[in-house]
Structures are given as structure tokens and as C-alpha cells.
Design a binder for these strands. Structure first.
Lengths: 198, 198
DNA sequence: CCTACCGATCGGTAGG
DNA sequence: CCTACCGATCGGTAGG
């Protein structure tokens, strides 16, 4: 029996993480137990521990993977739009589309992780904070550009714009996951327009 | 040994629920295990099961208790203000105060419960939906009155107002619990003012 | 990567 | 309300 090549190992790690993201989006990062994930992958618990080291390491890797998907889905494609207001609107559109047809079964992974770990200091809490800071920084930078472009009033606080867009996004995700009312997405988009369109 | 009087039983149930709300606000409704709560109350697991019947019944009773506290803290005192815009602003003020100095250790209980149970159909999910509907109905009714009073533009959709205020509240709670930045509360209040002040 | 196993905890029952 | 106990699952280790 030859040992697995580096590529096979990497792809098996990627497959493991893909399954982990799907599972955790439904049951949360705490519900992502070694036993359940091992079962779903048809492997033993100790095999999984061997790959990640501990449940916490698995949680961190899964969160990182989910953050990558969020970035690629919500705010990276928007860089095709001109910086400033147009790009902010592209981000809001992508975000609504992301929520309407989420790449994870259980809705926005980051919102769940944020709520799960907001009161539990530790590496996962720190990682969630970092992901959220990066996302808010993107919003804030585009808001700044929009102000420089004269697309938003000169006295606008870019941090206010970023904060409000994100709060609407997170709050809407919660409402939408609970009630599954597509009208919520339209309301949210209108509210974002109001923030960007004063 | 005389049996406990009805009053003693009731007060002991109330004390149990008070402890349950505090515990669940930190560890979530799923983390509210029979063993942990029994430990904290200095009683046996089976004694606790005897009081509530099952973990799910305990979760339902705890949620109801938390919803009562939310109601009494956030939107009942606002009925002292005149119906319409003034009352909406009183509710927003009370909500910011509630978040700044929450009656539960772990921040807004309802947000946590909403995220925890949004993907798990069952009695707890239904109860969370009911609580949220009641809260949104309060916001919507005051928005309608504000429109009738001419305090909001005639073409305002009261459902939009209720949705947006709630989304800001939930999203802000998540951000605030994670980052503990008091400035977030001021930003949120300003965003609510913008919704109510166009 | 596996089997076999560890002590802890889960929700809950039996019996009093 | 208690003690004693049930089978399942938790994160993880030992040993190969």
C-alpha cells in the first residue's frame, strides 16, 4: 500500500472541511462533534482527531473555511464594480443573494458562530472577531471612498455605514432563518438602500 | 414534615426559572442541561425533572420567563409615552438601555434562542416564533399610529419600520455581545432615529 | 488511518 | 424530593 500523496492528503482535508462546514451550519460549531463528523465521513473518530488535533482546531479550520466562502460569495465579486457607492450596492446585492440561496444548508455560518461564541473567550472567539473585523473594514473602506467621491454626504461617518449595513445583515439573517419569508430580504435591501441613499 | 404550601411551590418554581434564565443566557437553551441547573440549585436531576417533566418543557418555561422580562423591560414601560412616534422612540431608548445593562448575564436571550432554534422545528422553535411575532406586532402597531398621526410619511409601510428596527436590534446585539463596544449602541440608536426620522 | 477503551456527562427512569 | 442506575454520546488517548 503506497502512502497518500500530498495532493490526496490535501483534497481529503478539503473534503473533510466541506463536510464540516455543511454540518456546522446546521448544528453550530459546538454541535460539530468529532463523532458526528467522523460518522458522516465514514471514518473513525481517532482518524479525524489525527487530522485536526482537537475539536477546537477543527472548529477553527471550519470557521476559516466558512469565512473564505463568505468572502468569495459576498464581497470579492463586488470588486468588479467601481469602488465606492456602486461597490457597496453590489455587496448588498450579493449579500441578499447569499441569504436567499446560501452555500451552507443552515444559513449564515458567521452569524451562528458569532452568537455561539460571543460569551466564550478563547481562540474561536478571537477568530470570529477577526473575521467580522475584516468584513466591517471592507464596508468601511467602500463607504469612505463613496464619501470621497461625493456619493455620500461629506458628514457621513463611514463606520456608521459599515456598522448599520452589517447590523441589518445579521438581524435579517436571524429573521429570515426563523421565518423563511422572502419578503424579509426585500425589506432588508430597501433598508440598506435607505442607509446608502440619504 | 408538612408538605410545601402552594405558595412555597410557586416561589420555588420561580427561583428555579430565574436561575434557568441566567444560566441559559450564557450557555444557550441547549446548554441549559438538567444536570447543570440541578447542580446550581443544589438539588438532584430527578427533582428537576419532576418539576418540569423534560428538558424541552424546561426550555419552554425558561423562554417564556425570558420573554416576560423582555416585555417588561423593553416595551411595556414605553406605553407611558403617547402612542405613535414618541412611543417608538421610547421603545428604542428602552431597548438600548436593555442592551447596555441586560437583565441576563449573557446578553439578549431571545437573539440566542432564535439563532439556536431557527433550523430545528419543534415546540421551542414555535415558541420563539410566537415571541418574535408579538414583539414585531408591537412595533408595527406603533408605526401605524405614527403614520395616522402624520409623524411618519403617509407612504411608509409599517411592516418595513417594524422589520428594520428589529433587524437593527438583533444585529446590534450580536455585534455588541462580541465586541463590547459601547459606541455600537450609539450607532444603533442613530440608525433607528434615521429609520424613524426620514 | 484503525480498534479498543477512558472518565465525564447527557436525558431520563425505577423505585421509594 | 432523593439515590441508584440505564444506554448513548462526549472529547480524547493508547497502542498498533
Amino acid at each position: 500500500m503506497p502512502r497518500r500523496s500530498a495532493i490526496e492528503v490535501a483534497s481529503s482535508r478539503a473534503e473533510t472541511l466541506a463536510a464540516a462546514v455543511q454540518l456546522a451550519s446546521v448544528v453550530g460549531l459546538e454541535g460539530l462533534t468529532i463523532g458526528r463528523l467522523a460518522d458522516r465521513l465514514g471514518m473513525s473518530k481517532s482518524g479525524l482527531v489525527g487530522r485536526f488535533g482537537s475539536k477546537e482546531q477543527l472548529q477553527l479550520a471550519t470557521l476559516e473555511q466558512a469565512a473564505d466562502i463568505f468572502r468569495r460569495t459576498v464581497y470579492e465579486p463586488a470588486s468588479a464594480a467601481p469602488a465606492g457607492l456602486a461597490r457597496l450596492n453590489a455587496i448588498c446585492d450579493a449579500w441578499v443573494a447569499y441569504l436567499a440561496r446560501p452555500p451552507f444548508l443552515g444559513g449564515c455560518f458567521l452569524t451562528t458562530a458569532m452568537v455561539e461564541f460571543d460569551a466564550r473567550p478563547g481562540p474561536v472567539n478571537n477568530a470570529v472577531k477577526k473575521v467580522m473585523r475584516r468584513w466591517l473594514a471592507v464596508l468601511e473602506r467602500e463607504a469612505s471612498t463613496a464619501i470621497d467621491n461625493g456619493e455620500l454626504p461629506a458628514d457621513t461617518d463611514p463606520k456608521d455605514v459599515a456598522f448599520t449595513i452589517n447590523a441589518l445583515a445579521v438581524g435579517t439573517n436571524c429573521d429570515f432563518q426563523l421565518n423563511r419569508n422572502p419578503g424579509s430580504l426585500q425589506r432588508a435591501r430597501r433598508a440598506m438602500t435607505a442607509v446608502l441613499g440619504r
